[in-house]
């Protein structure tokens, strides 16, 4: 009997504890929703009309050093920058900056009376800094200052951006009147020169730049399944441009200057991300794989002993 009482007591105790537990879980669940509600109520998103992609020039002056004259000089540089404004609340702005394939998140504040933003990149990259920009209808202008002025070539840059709608369009191609010379990969080349008066022949070193062919206007790897036959007679630069046109259409921000140069000549190219792999269609993926194979072949074989 005593035993039974004890068991009953124990069972009641266990039940009570269980009830308490459930109750506490319930209350915490209630609290969660309450917090969530509070969050959405207290911090509403404002100025959603300003959300979007602002893209344009990012220019500054770089200090350079001339090896020949041993003198420093200033060089004007211009890059293409995109700022993505993703979320604005009363006390915070969230978004990303993208330049030369370097995508950085930023956080900042929006001043409603002055229509200006102060946007801070995280600071753990040597190229991070602070944007001070003003917005006026669709244009965003202002300046950027690097946190660490000694680690970047141009610590002060000005920006002039226009709001653009990014849309993927498989029909986008390089402009027909583009400059097709790749200025970034010159190859040393020896040439002979014969003086017409003295008849002496001299050798001199010169540089040769690659030039793309008009195949880059004709072959679109986003629209049709490419075959080996389409690509066989193309040189490496053509293959690279045809392939990277796919990535440019998806808004890829190129790290390599070579490709930036070709696509920044178009008015449709808006760099919005440093990784667009997930956006490629199955056909584009197949074409990119094929183009990679041909590029590899061109690299391995074109100017070597072999076929």
């Amino acid at each position: 009997m005593k035993n039974l009482k004890f068991i009953l007591f124990a069972a009641v105790l266990v039940l009570l504890v269980n009830c308490k537990k459930e109750a506490s879980v319930e209350t915490s669940a209630k609290m969660d929703t309450a917090v969530a509600k509070v969050d959405s109520v207290v911090i509403p998103e404002i100025h959603q009309e300003l959300y979007g992609i602002y893209t344009g020039n990012f220019s500054g002056t770089e200090k350079r050093f001339d090896e020949y004259s041993k003198e420093g000089y200033d060089e004007e540089i211009e890059k293409r920058l995109s700022l993505k404004i993703n979320r604005i609340t009363k006390d915070s702005v969230y978004g990303q900056s993208i330049v030369n394939g370097n995508q950085r998140p930023f956080r900042g504040v929006f001043n409603e009376t002055e229509n200006s933003f102060v946007l801070d990149e995280p600071g753990d990259d040597k190229t991070d800094g602070r944007f001070n920009v003003k917005i006026k209808s669709d244009s965003l202008t202002g300046k950027w200052v690097a946190y660490n002025k000694s680690r970047v070539k141009a610590p002060l840059k000005s920006l002039k951006l226009i709001k653009k709608e990014f849309v993927y369009n498989p029909n986008f191609m390089i402009d027909k009147d583009s400059d097709l010379i790749d200025w970034t990969n010159p190859k040393d080349f020896e040439e002979k020169y014969t003086d017409s008066e003295t008849g002496k022949t001299e050798k001199y070193k010169t540089e040769r730049n690659r030039v793309a062919s008009d195949a880059v206007f004709k072959i679109n790897a986003s629209k049709q399944k490419l075959t080996e036959k389409d690509l066989k007679n193309l040189r490496k630069l053509d293959l690279e441009i045809i392939k990277n046109s796919v990535f440019a259409r998806h808004g890829y921000s190129f790290k390599k200057e070579t490709y930036r140069y070709f696509f920044e000549q178009t008015d449709w190219y808006i760099p919005v991300s440093n990784n667009v792999d997930a956006d490629l269609s199955p056909m584009e993926l197949e074409n990119v794989a094929l183009l990679n194979r041909f590029t590899k072949y061109a690299e391995d074989k074109y100017d070597y002993f072999g076929r």
Binding site: K232, L234, Y302, D303, F305, R307
Partner: peptide, 21 residues
Amino acid sequence: TLRLWKLVIVYFFQPNPMDVY
């Protein structure tokens, strides 16, 4: 000799790959 000629032609004229071929 085929592969040697290819080398020579590519060095001097840089034609497209199938034109060399």
